[in-house]
Design a protein around this nucleic acid. Structure first.
Lengths: 147, 147
DNA sequence: TATTGTTATACTCTATAACTATA
DNA sequence: TATAGTTATAGAGTATAACAATA
């Protein structure tokens, strides 16, 4: 029996399309990896940026992650409601919010980071360390010009 | 004045997270690039795979693109309703559908392909040809094991 | 019994416009 | 008047379970 066609046509050599596919695969595996933690991809991103920048402004945090202000609201509300971050009114600009991670937030981020380490090692098992560095560099050259 | 922190923390060197970011950037630019055509990313993917494999089975087409059967239905319906593909009952397995692209579908795919060429050239302006080949190879090594 | 495709539905993330309260 | 955050809402893609028709 002939090998079934694996050709997906013109999109097969397009970086944009394959980027989406690869991200979708990571995304599905991410969901399973953090099952039971209540975390989602953008929540982890926010925990990460707030941990790295204590007291960071809400809008700045969103900008660093490519999240629009309108979409930050529900994420931040959820992180506060679950006790993972705290939000304070900025002392010199009362329109702005200053975000800080709680000890529980730090612990959860660490837990998820370990799980995601495992996931990346599995999904990138065929990559050498140098290739992983190049891959990350390529991705950052796409995102770096924006964030 | 000090350079504002650009550090997004532990996720900054994770390929999964940066994959999502890069895909999101491509996705937003994609939307603008094909504005007015009625196309969306997965519709283009389906047009592409059906063009490359005339008469392909609906489920196979979905599998090649990572689209679940349940999610194929609306996509296929839309492509038929807009006259871009046709669907025939498979002559030897009457449960299955055989898909074929119409001339209008071919023309639209070509139009979009050109627009997306331009987009990729812009987004990957800083990449050498060799780097683009490597980038695509990396992505295919993530997706290849699945699709 | 297993498979192809379908329906229904919920979830995650993204986008836009109109709004408030401060600056 | 501009900015920080908000509300409301729509769109795109993905996930699961239960189902009908056919194999």
């Amino acid at each position: 029996m002939a090998k079934p066609s694996q050709d997906i046509g013109v999109v097969s050599n397009r970086i944009g399309f394959n980027l989406r596919r690869a991200a979708a695969i990571f995304s599905a595996d991410f969901t399973h990896a953090v099952e039971g933690t209540g975390m989602r991809q953008m929540l982890i991103g926010i925990l990460s940026v707030v941990t790295a920048n204590p007291g960071v402004n809400q809008g700045v945090a969103g900008r660093l992650l490519g999240i629009k202000p309108a979409n930050m609201v529900a994420f931040i509300t959820e992180l506060i409601d679950t006790g993972l971050i705290v939000r304070d009114v900025d002392s010199i600009d009362r329109r702005a919010f200053s975000l800080r991670v709680t000890p529980r937030g730090v612990a959860l981020l660490n837990d998820c980071t370990q799980r995601l380490d495992t996931l990346e090692n599995e999904l990138l098992a065929g990559f050498t360390d140098d290739e992983k560095v190049s891959f990350l560099d390529f991705l950052n050259r796409v995102t770096g010009s924006v964030g």
